Amino acid sequence: MSREFRPGEVISYPYLWAWQQQHGETEGGKQRAVCVVVAIRGASDGNTHLALLAITTQPPQAGRAALEIPHIERKRAGLGDLKQSWITVDEYNYDIVERSWYIEPNQDTLGRFSKSFMIKIAGLFAEARGRSSRVNRFD
């Protein structure tokens, strides 16, 4: 893989929701914008490990942890055509770039969130980690 992924980048990805996985599905229903919240190069394997958060136009259901994306941040992320959107922080897709079936070499980003907005996202993601669902996408 020739490009580095950085937290805050927004890319297109076939996100698999945890409820879809629980129903036996293995593929995301559609390409959607996702935010790279964690990007770590593994010390033992040299691979790039990503935690990806879904961006959706659907308001969060009761009991879910999500953050509404302000207009200026939607523009920065390349999502300016969406009237409202949220980033879900209580579940994530875990993928390994070099083993991924879903990330293309030299894949372009849609945009990137600001550092201050990413701090909010990362803080909420960290708070939700104990009760969040991880969906592995590299198997």
Rank of each mutant, 00 (worst) to 15 (best):
A66V: 04
Q22G: 04
A18D: 12
T57R: 06
S44D: 13
K30P: 02
Y15C: 00
R41W: 05
I40F: 09
I55R: 05
T48L: 13
A51L: 15
R41K: 10
E27L: 04
G42T: 05
G24S: 05
C35W: 09
R32L: 11
D45R: 01
R64P: 01
D45S: 04
V37D: 01
G28N: 00
S44W: 05
Q21Y: 12
T48M: 15
I40G: 09
L52A: 02
R41L: 09
W19M: 05
Y13N: 05
G29P: 01
R41M: 09
T56M: 03
V38S: 09
P59H: 03
A66H: 04
V36Q: 03
L16N: 00
P60L: 08
A62E: 15
I40K: 14
T26V: 08
L50R: 07
N47I: 05
Y15G: 03
L67K: 00
V36R: 05
N47A: 14
E68Q: 10
I40M: 07
N47G: 07
H49C: 06
P59K: 12
A65K: 14
N47R: 14
G46A: 10
Q61T: 11
A33S: 13
C35Y: 04
R41H: 03
T56H: 08
Q22I: 10
W17P: 03
H23W: 13
G63W: 13
I40P: 00
A33V: 12
E25V: 02
T26A: 13
E68D: 08
I55P: 03
R64W: 01
H49W: 12
A18L: 07
L67Q: 02
R32C: 11
L50K: 08
A39E: 11
A65M: 10
W19D: 10
H49T: 10
A54Y: 02
A43N: 11
V34M: 03
E68K: 11
E27R: 06
A51Q: 15
G24P: 06
